[in-house]
Structure formats: structure tokens, C-alpha cells
């Protein structure tokens, strides 16, 4: 559906995208993850035909984006980081305008508009002027304009940017509702967003895809290692006993929490149940055993530090081969 081949983008003397090869299949929901300045927005703008690559090719449904941008845009819905709104228009009027720009006739708009207002939770403000809407509602109008013409592909640039926690949950639900109907590519620098909404993750670092795969595939590249915080009651003696047991199971100490004295340990995530069992069997009162960071966060930190991506362990590769 979307395929980029050896795409480079240079602004003046700065290369922001380097040799970008990505492939997105129909119906996928793909998250583009990267720290600020990694090249996420530039990538999305090239896919939306707002920018041309300095080199390489972008094809959407087999159509070259440089040669036939109008054709490609007809297949796309795009939400930029700031929604492109006309403040003096009402929500309904704006959506009708967006639909007509994309070639929708009056009959189709009449059918589609109530659906979009319902999908994006905008029925109550349909007649309201956009200038009077809150940030969360403006973001919804931005999504509504991107989906009004039922595009095959939806590109969302930081859709939860600036939203409060309640609005983030609502937006997440909205994106989930859209998943079946569109191929979605969304960018964010918020990990939980990707974890909860996307099928596949592309991690961008310094203009390159540094890692990609499902959350499970990426976790397996970490070798299943992660941080865990263990809190046992009974003072220093109990903590020392817990640490000795943990080290015996292959965990290594990474310090202790200043107030509670809880131990921060690093080790195989699969060993957490065994650790819990050992602590309890040793007569220690286990108050907490909490993974400190998700595997995805670890991968993201690795990538952000510019560390080379860890190869998937042989067992994981074998498992994949068997299942395929």
C-alpha cells in the first residue's frame, strides 16, 4: 500500500531523512516513534505529498507520489500536528468544504457527514464556529476532515499533542474505531500511545529507521531483559536476603529507592515469577514486584542513544520461521 525506497530528504545543508525504506500493508495501524527532531513529521509530510524527497521514491497503491501527487492525495487523509482549520466556519460547514475539495457530491456528503460527526464525537458542536472550540475538539475536527472522504490511508501527525488525559483516552478510542476502515500511520513520541493503538512500530532515529516490528518482536530483540522494582518488608536484613536470592537467579542490582528502600533489579523478564516464588518461599514478605519500564521503552532508549539495534535471538527467529 505504501512503499518508500531509499528516500532521502535534505533541508539546505542538513540531511533529515537518510535512506528510508518502509513498507506498510493495507489495513495495518503503524506507529512512527521517535524523539523530537528524529524526522517523523518530515516523513509524514513526504507521504502526504507536501514535500518531495531529495532522492528516492514513494509509491502509494503503486502510484508514484512525485509524478501523480493529486492521485495520491485523493487516497489520503492527513492530520498535521496543528489541525488545518478555518476559524470562521462552523464544524459542519468546514467538513462539507473538506469533502467537496476531495470530490464528494452532495448526496454522498449528506450520507457521510452524520457518520463522521458520530465517529468523532462532534454531533453536539456541528453548528458551532470552530473558533469557539476547545483544543480537544479542534483536534477532533482535524481528524474528521481527514476521514470525511473515506480515504484508504490515514496519516496522523502527533494526534494527541497537547490533549489532557481525558481527551487522550477519547482520542485513543477514536483511533481504535478508525482502525478497521483505514490503513493508519501515526507518529508520536509517547510510548504508551503506540503500545495501545498500533499493530506495528517503526522507530526513527536521526532520519533512519533504527528498529521496526511488532511490540513482541522488538521485545525479543532486547533479549527479554528489563528492570524490575522489588519491595520486601523487614528492613535491611530482609533486603540483603532478597538481593542475594535475586542474584542467585541471574538478576543484578541497579540501586535502591531512596524512601522505601525497594531494590531495582535488571534481569530476564521471564524470570519474574521465579523471583517472586523464591522470595516468598524464603519467608520474606513481598510487598511489590513491579516491572519498571516496558520492553518498548528500553528499545526506544537504546535507539535514542544511537545504539545499534540488537539482533533478535536465534530462538525468536526460529519461532517466527516455524509459525510462518
Amino acid at each position: 500500500m505504501i512503499r518508500t525506497t531509499h528516500v532521502f530528504k535534505q533541508y539546505a545543508d542538513r540531511e533529515v531523512i537518510r535512506d528510508l525504506d518502509l513498507h506498510i500493508e493495507q489495513g495495518e495501524c503503524v506507529g512512527l516513534l521517535g524523539e523530537n527532531g528524529a524526522g517523523k513529521t518530515t516523513t509524514l509530510r513526504m507521504l502526504a505529498c507536501l514535500l518531495l524527497p531529495s532522492a528516492g521514491s514513494i509509491r502509494v497503491n503503486g502510484v508514484d507520489a512525485e509524478e501523480h501527487p493529486e492521485q495520491v492525495r485523493a487516497e489520503l487523509g492527513y492530520l498535521p500536528d496543528t489541525p488545518p482549520l478555518y476559524d470562521e466556519m462552523s464544524v459542519g460547514e468546514y467538513l462539507r468544504f473538506a469533502g467537496k475539495l476531495r470530490g464528494m457530491d452532495a448526496a454522498r456528503l449528506k450520507r457521510r457527514l452524520p457518520e463522521v460527526l458520530d465517529q468523532t464525537g462532534l454531533e453536539d458542536v456541528a453548528e458551532q464556529r470552530i473558533s469557539t472550540l476547545s483544543h480537544g475538539y479542534r483536534q477532533r475536527v482535524g481528524i474528521a476532515q481527514a476521514v470525511v472522504h473515506e480515504p484508504a490511508i490515514l496519516i496522523l501527525d502527533e494526534p494527541i499533542n497537547g490533549l489532557d488525559p481525558v481527551q487522550i483516552v477519547e482520542m485513543r478510542e477514536m483511533i481504535r474505531r478508525l482502525r478497521g476502515a483505514h490503513t493508519i500511520l501515526l507518529s508520536t513520541h509517547i510510548l504508551t500511545e503506540i503500545e495501545q493503538t498500533c499493530d506495528r512500530i517503526l522507530m526513527l532515529h536521526d532520519g533512519r529507521i533504527a528498529a521496526e516490528g511488532t511490540e513482541q518482536e522488538l521485545s525479543s530483540r532486547l533479549g527479554g531483559r528489563g528492570f524490575v522494582r522489588v519491595e520486601v518488608r523487614g528492613g535491611d536484613e530482609a533486603r540483603a536476603k532478597a538481593l542475594a536470592l535475586a542474584e542467585g537467579l541471574g538478576f543484578s542490582a541497579h540501586g535502591a529507592h531512596a524512601q522505601t528502600g525497594a531494590l531495582d533489579l535488571e534481569g530476564d523478564a521471564a524470570g519474574h515469577p521465579a523471583l517472586a516464588r523464591a522470595l516468598i518461599e524464603a519467608g520474606l514478605e513481598l510487598a511489590r514486584l513491579e516491572p519498571r519500564s516496558s520492553d518498548l521503552e528500553e528499545i526506544f532508549l537504546q535507539v535514542s542513544r544511537g545504539d545499534p539495534p540488537v539482533e533478535a535471538p536465534e530462538s525468536a527467529t526460529d519461532a517466527k520461521e516455524v509459525s510462518s
Binding site: 493495507q26 489495513g27 493529486e70 485523493a74 487516497e75 478555518y86 466556519m89 468544504f97 467537496k100 475539495l101 476531495r102 470530490g103 464528494m104 472522504h149 473515506e150 480515504p151 484508504a152 490511508i153 478497521g180 476502515a181 483505514h182 490503513t183
Partner: peptide, 21 residues
Amino acid sequence: MSAATALHVSPWRSCLQVYLR
């Protein structure tokens, strides 16, 4: 997939929409 059958877009009709808006 329930997404759009690609719409036929007449550029001059869209131009008229820009004008009217």
C-alpha cells in the same frame, strides 16, 4: 476494507470550492 472507493476529483470543481469559501 470499508474505506473509500477512490473518488473522481474534478480539479476545477475543487477550484470553485476554494473560490466560494
